[in-house]
Design a protein around this nucleic acid. Structure first.
Lengths: 360, 360
DNA sequence: CAATAAATTGTTCACGTGTGCAGGCTCTGT
DNA sequence: ACAGAGCCTGCACACGTGAACAATTTATTG
């Protein structure tokens, strides 16, 4: 119960506590023989270093913060899981991973200090976390920003190219013959929402398709919102022949709404998602989507923050000259079966069908 | 950049650092006027207490560990997400939540000490984490065990009654007229796997149905394993009319396999899941399952560990007399549409159909 | 063998905070 | 005005560790 300290070990080994400290930290100053002797004793006594005391003098906390913009809504479970797992794979037991939701802080960032976190990984959805990041920087804490562009912030930055991914996906849909491509957007205000929407719009433009506001419906990145959004689309005067759902979760909801309306995917309406989560390949039909390398982003983020922490401690605690990099990781179009190819004649029929319906 | 300490504040306020310390900790010894003055100064200076120094003297780390048996496989994303969110909702900013996977430790638990964690929540899948828990107890760290019975371990304990949940579900399936009920089991060795299997077996027994080993297939709790398991079942000589999948993820995989075989759910084969994750209501057909109150378990676990920590600090650091409670939270049968009712005649037909197939 | 260099160990202090104890101030009652 | 009581503040130390510097031992060289 009573905790063993290096002083206890020192007494038993008949050396000074400094020697013990050095031995356990593998200092080259210590004779190998005594070093081993002390290490063994520490082992037998079940010695555990006191992180507080250690941190007090080394200015380290051995904590890495992993902050999400929000954990309540708009963060999908698969995404969250992949991120935590990815980061955890890299930091192993060198650091504690402290998971927090930014909206918890209520703009009181004073609890965020060098003493609390050696580094911070921000899984960012919105620019609203700028204040927090600036606070961290001002405190001299290395920061890595994932998932959105850093802009003028001096932080490590790892991104996936959502704009390009969405563009490629929508282009594929258009080339499959679809003219009326709807979009179920992500949660309002999220950077990913904006990026994907822009990719969608650009693809339409490059293929001379006029975007139709009626075919753009707001979602919230969760299954339920995808369902509701699709129901809205089904009621619109111009029924889309394909729908780009801004993540896979919403695609599940959308498919549900379509089937409830006694229509088929993809024969009547094609559906595409974004993320390529673990379910995507197991839906019926298998979901055509964009693989976003979430785990890879997280792992890169983890190694980057550790690099920055090391660099900082080596460069005499001067934050200013930490190099910050920006890495973009490519997303990848994954073609499965939820988007149908339609020919020109089919397209015509579809329109006639729509016209005749429009009358009633 | 340079950090503000209570000594700095003391100098500026022309008092001793002791007074500052007391003022900031709301000690009744300090005059309200000076107290407010000091607090305001601390605010203006953006003072952040040094947790290490604080912890060094108060014997606290302000960390709560949240340990999962594994994060690599066998823990579903939705489950993980719900747990972290639930715990986070309760501990707010009083503690740091440190997420770890137990298999990281490689049975070197020496990093787990009172200094590191004020308390530990173990989301346990298997008895293999016993060594870790015993280590924590021996170090005097309060522990709450979620998800499996504590047995003789002196820890707080919060459970869902998986056995009962599975029993009720399988009973419902049988009462719907199914005689050949298969099971796709969870990951081998997990307590939940055993509990759910036992519930299944007991329900069969109570309705005088002989369990058939051919209808019991091992899964791993992930989508892919559900798919593979179902493919196996489809090849079995006795085709089941209903399948109890031990979690919702595997149910998704199973449904996929059935549809690929040109069969329908639930007309040809009924499917039931376990967990009631966010997708369950949005599958086609909507999944009949058992709602496991994961979030509630996690929240209760969080409040319990905080209670234990408080109790320990009050009772003069004597771990022995911390009260440990055991709470069981009921799971609940959620009837949707993936289990069909079949009449006696249908059952007969089905058998004939099966027999005729069996011949070829 | 002495002198010097090298290797190893010990002494002392600092990190930032909280607390027991001692002391000073103010107020009250006489 | 003075003693005593009560309120407030400060001094000094402790927590466990690491590091600069000092001291000691051992190895090396002429």
């Amino acid at each position: 119960m009573s905790t063993v300290t290096i002083k206890d070990i020192a007494r038993l080994a008949k050396v000074s506590h400094t020697t013990v400290s050095r031995a356990l930290n593998n200092s080259p100053l210590i004779n190998d023989k005594t070093k081993n002797r002390i290490k063994q004793m520490a082992d037998e006594l079940n010695y555990t270093p006191n992180v507080n005391a250690k941190g007090l003098v080394t200015l380290r906390s051995y904590n890495i913060g992993l902050f999400f913009s929000t954990l309540s809504t708009g963060t999908s479970a698969n995404f969250f899981y992949d991120v935590v797992r990815g980061v955890n794979m890299e930091i192993k037991d060198q650091y504690n991973l402290v998971v927090k939701s930014i909206d918890e802080f209520e703009s009181n960032f004073n609890r965020i200090s060098t003493r609390q976190y050696d580094g911070i990984i921000v899984m960012s959805q919105t620019r609203a976390d700028r204040a927090l990041i600036e606070h961290a920087i001002s405190k001299g804490i290395p920061v890595v920003l994932l998932n959105r562009a850093a802009g003028d912030l001096v932080v490590g930055n790892i991104l996936s190219d959502d704009h390009k991914g969405a563009y490629q996906l929508v282009e594929y849909i258009i080339r499959s013959g679809h003219q009326h491509v709807a979009i179920i957007e992500g949660r309002e205000g999220f950077q990913s929402t904006i990026q994907r929407k822009n990719g969608y719009l650009e693809a339409l433009k490059d293929h001379s398709i006029e975007p139709n506001p009626e075919l753009c419906v707001q979602g919230k990145y969760d299954v339920g919102s995808g369902y509701e959004a699709m129901r809205l689309l089904l009621k619109s005067t111009l029924r889309p022949s394909a729908v780009f759902c801004c993540n896979d979760d919403m695609a599940v909801g959308a498919i549900k709404a379509i089937i409830e309306a006694n229509l088929r995917v993809p024969e009547d309406i094609s559906i595409a998602g974004f993320d390529d989560n673990v379910f995507a390949a197991y839906l019926s039909p298998e979901l055509t989507t964009v693989k976003r390398p979430i785990e890879q982003i997280s792992r890169e983020g983890a190694t980057m923050i550790m690099r920055m922490i090391d660099q900082k401690s080596k460069s005499d605690k001067e934050y200013a000259n930490i190099d910050v990099e920006q890495i973009t990781i490519e997303s990848k179009l994954v073609i499965r079966k939820s988007v149908a190819s339609i020919t020109a004649t089919e397209r015509l029929e579809e329109h006639e069908e729509y016209d005749s319906r429009g009358i009633r």
